[in-house]
């Protein structure tokens, strides 16, 4: 599903990612852990195509296509979804209107009919239940005045609606209390399927108690310094990131 080879990337002029190789197959959930500044967010931004980041070397192959040649919106339409660490507030644009526009843009790209208002509403209500999202958040402006937890639920709601093939979750656990974390994780887990891949980026092991990954990679100074099974999270929790540096 996702094949990253020798990736080097910069934020602005600063090299951040210094050679990453990563292969995530369909149906797999991988986690990337690492200290602040290790390049976790840069990796997610490069995958989503955020302006200001440039790939200086290497390749990213997504579902048999060259991801780096695609525009941001094309990646989204082809099934790449980034759950933002800091979802953006957009005053004056209704959340519901935004989600419907987004869903229909993606459906149209994939040769499906657009959903009308009624069908969209029905679908949306069903998905909202799964993330325990109050209905008034749909009639409000995108993320405007949402609490931290509401913003993250809104991200997961979008993921549930758009049903992407590759889900990238960028520190989705940051700023969440334990109840919100459970709700968000349940939403994510409900999307786990044999034809979908997930990349969960987090600083803390806590999230991985709820979203249990198949593989864990530890990122430090722009490189994957350790990869292992889910037991690696426990080790990191116990010994901290300093331990990784020492073993290198």
């Amino acid at each position: 599903m996702l094949d990253i080879q020798n990736l080097h990337a910069s934020a602005g002029d600063t090299p951040i990612i210094k050679g990453i190789d990563l292969h995530i197959g369909a149906g797999e959930v991988h986690a990337i852990m690492g200290p602040n500044g290790s390049g976790k967010s840069t990796l997610s931004n490069v995958l989503a195509g955020r302006p200001g980041y440039s790939v200086t070397q290497g390749e990213i192959n997504y579902d048999g296509k060259n991801l780096l040649e695609m525009e941001t919106e094309t990646r989204a339409r082809e099934g790449v979804f980034l759950a933002f660490q800091y979802p953006v507030e957009i005053p004056g644009v209704g959340n519901s209107y935004f989600l419907k526009t987004s869903l229909n843009a993606i459906r149209t790209h994939n040769g499906l009919d657009e959903l009308d208002a009624m069908d969209f509403l029905a679908l949306c209500e069903e998905k909202m239940k799964r993330v325990e999202m109050p209905s008034d958040l749909m009639s409000r402006s995108i993320n405007e005045g949402f609490s931290g937890g509401e913003k993250k639920r809104n991200e997961i709601l979008q993921m549930l609606l758009l049903e992407p093939k590759l889900c990238v979750l960028d520190e989705t656990d940051s700023g969440l209390d334990i109840d919100a974390l459970r709700v968000v994780a349940n939403g994510v887990n409900s999307l786990r399927s044999p034809d979908r891949a997930m990349l969960v980026i987090t600083h803390y092991q806590r999230l991985l108690d709820y979203i249990v990954p198949d593989r864990i990679h530890v990122l430090a100074d722009g490189k994957i310094v350790r990869s292992g099974g889910r037991e690696l999270a426990g080790e990191l929790e116990e010994k901290g990131y300093g331990w990784i540096g020492q073993t290198e």
């Binding site: 195509g49 302006p51 339409r77 933002f84 979802p87 953006v88 935004f98 526009t101 987004s102 758009l162």
Partner: peptide, 13 residues
Amino acid sequence: DEEALFYLRSRGL
């Protein structure tokens, strides 16, 4: 807002 533009584009717009 560039950030908002990116957010919307990352959702397929």
